[in-house]
Design a protein around this nucleic acid. Sequence first.
DNA 1: AACGGAATGATAATCACTCTCATTCTGGTC
DNA 2: GACCAGAATGAGAGTGATTATCATTCCGTT
Lengths: 151, 151
Amino acid sequence: MSSAAGISRSVHEAVTRRLAGADQRYTHLRRVLVETLAAAGRPLTIPEIVASAPELPQSSAYRNMTALIDLGVVRRVAGADDHGRFELAEELSSHHHHIVCATCGKVEDVHPSPKLERALGEAARAVAEEQGYEVTEHQLDLLGLCPACRE
Amino acid sequence: MSSAAGISRSVHEAVTRRLAGADQRYTHLRRVLVETLAAAGRPLTIPEIVASAPELPQSSAYRNMTALIDLGVVRRVAGADDHGRFELAEELSSHHHHIVCATCGKVEDVHPSPKLERALGEAARAVAEEQGYEVTEHQLDLLGLCPACRE
DNA sequence: AACGGAATGATAATCACTCTCATTCTGGTC
DNA sequence: GACCAGAATGAGAGTGATTATCATTCCGTT
Ligand SMILES: [Mn+2]
Ligand SMILES: [Mn+2]
Ligand SMILES: [Zn+2]
Ligand SMILES: [Zn+2]
């Protein structure tokens, strides 16, 4: 009963598969990154990750995060401040949106209702038709104040 | 019949009002910035703006853009690449969303249907209730390929 | 054990953006 | 229409997140 384990067996399998497909290795550092992101359940900054795993050098954190992004395992999320935030790609977690605190920059996941997703799908279709784009994805950010920042 | 004029009388008035309220001046440079953003109808990067108005030094472009943001006249939009993009605040234009080209990074405006906005409003209400946030704003980005990048 | 490619990590480099500060402009006031 | 005070300008230096370098180490395979 390793405590962090409930989090993800299939995730590791998926990552292993993708790395293998690119002749790359699922090293300890990469495992730490994936594990950390999976456990967080919200997008994390590199400073946050390094703080929680001090054996992880900053340069390696950045390099491996980029590698995981290139593989489609991780997604970068733009927040309110100037630090990038990272989370597992939706294929390895599930489709969701974000709520961003305008004051402290914290980002949390939001799971959308089917009704909302239906409306978003229609919007994508309309844009495809009217502006000639091929829409592949959407991304909704709510902006506001987190419980802590509301005082 | 100045050609760029149809674009915005009330916009200049609103900007003037806000600047006055902060004891600041509506200078030539600031006029160029507002004019350029209003004419574009899509978020522009600083390099784009400087290219279209070479008399405008980069440092002044950044400084004045920041000033306009602080006044609530301009909004910063995060795109797909590492350049920030800037557009008139919604109070001076109208509420809308964006479609981002994943390949070239171009960003265009998308005007939402009432039905979509209704669904987004509901989502905001749900998050406020379930996660304790005070939601003040939302921002939807569609991601895809622009007509040019579809080949 | 030995080879070859991948990964590591300390460090330097990049690049968007911000700050500094000496100079110039602006808009009243007399 | 000179004068003053504060605002704005712009060339250049500085900041800070991210990325590239590269000598060394690790890993999987023969
Ligand atoms: Mn998320
Ligand atoms: Mn816009
Ligand atoms: Zn907060
Ligand atoms: Zn494009």
